[in-house]
Computed example of a mutant assay.
Amino acid sequence: MRDVRDALMVARNTDGKLVNRPLSPHLQIYRWPISMALSILHRATGIALGVGTLLLTWWLVAAATSPQAFDAAQGFIGSPIGLLLLFGWSVALIFHFFSGIRHLAWDLGYGFEAPHYDNSGKAVLIATAVAVVLVWAVGLSVW
């Protein structure tokens, strides 16, 4: 006996032939649109900024507490793991900033046409890469 849900899994292809529908998009042929990927990344960087701010808070509280506490925090942040966390936090901050500007433009009603939101997404990625390189080049040159 066939289940009623089986009827929902049948469709017609472009030739009119009955075919079974796939259960989910095929991962090897499905590509995320850039806007969808950047929207998800915008949310993820928002979370990363919240977590990264804990590191910044620890550093500021240590600076206000004592020279020994500041030396411990500064030692961790200057370590390879601390620098990696700081680099990730700066990438998240800069990406979130440029992506937020893009979202503000959308809130104002600009950039909803297909070529515009694809190009603005690419611009966000390029601006992020350029700004991260500039920030780290300046930061490492004065360190």
Rank of each mutant, 00 (worst) to 15 (best):
R2A: 14
R2I: 14
D3K: 08
D6W: 06
A7N: 09
A7Y: 13
A7R: 09
L8K: 11
M9Y: 09
T14G: 11
T14D: 11
D15T: 11
G16D: 14
K17N: 12
L18T: 07
P22Y: 09
P22K: 10
L23I: 06
L23S: 07
P25S: 07
H26E: 08
Q28W: 02
I29S: 15
Y30L: 11
M36S: 09
M36P: 00
A37S: 08
A37V: 05
L38Y: 00
L38Q: 06
L41T: 05
L41D: 01
L41E: 02
H42E: 02
R43V: 08
R43G: 10
G46R: 02
L49M: 14
V51K: 01
L54R: 00
L54N: 01
L56W: 04
L56S: 11
L56P: 00
W59T: 04
W59H: 11
L60C: 07
A62F: 06
A63K: 04
A63G: 05
A63I: 02
T65K: 12
P67N: 03
Q68R: 12
A69D: 10
D71E: 15
D71A: 15
A73P: 05
A73L: 08
A73S: 12
Q74Y: 13
F76I: 04
F76N: 00
I77F: 10
I77V: 14
G78H: 13
P80N: 04
I81D: 05
G82T: 05
G82P: 04
L83E: 13
L84M: 09
L85S: 03
G88E: 00
G88Y: 01
S90V: 13
S90R: 02
V91P: 00
A92M: 03
L93F: 13
F95P: 00
F97W: 15
F98N: 03
S99K: 00
G100T: 10
I101Q: 09
I101S: 07
I101F: 13
H103S: 12
H103C: 06
H103V: 15
L104Y: 10
W106C: 01
G109M: 09
F112Y: 12
E113F: 09
P115G: 00
Y117P: 01
N119F: 11
S120M: 12
G121E: 01
G121V: 00
K122M: 08
A123E: 03
A123C: 05
L125M: 11
A127T: 05
T128S: 13
T128G: 01
A131K: 06
V132I: 07
V133A: 11
V135Y: 14
A137Q: 01
A137W: 08
V138S: 03
G139M: 05
S141G: 03
V142G: 01
W143H: 10
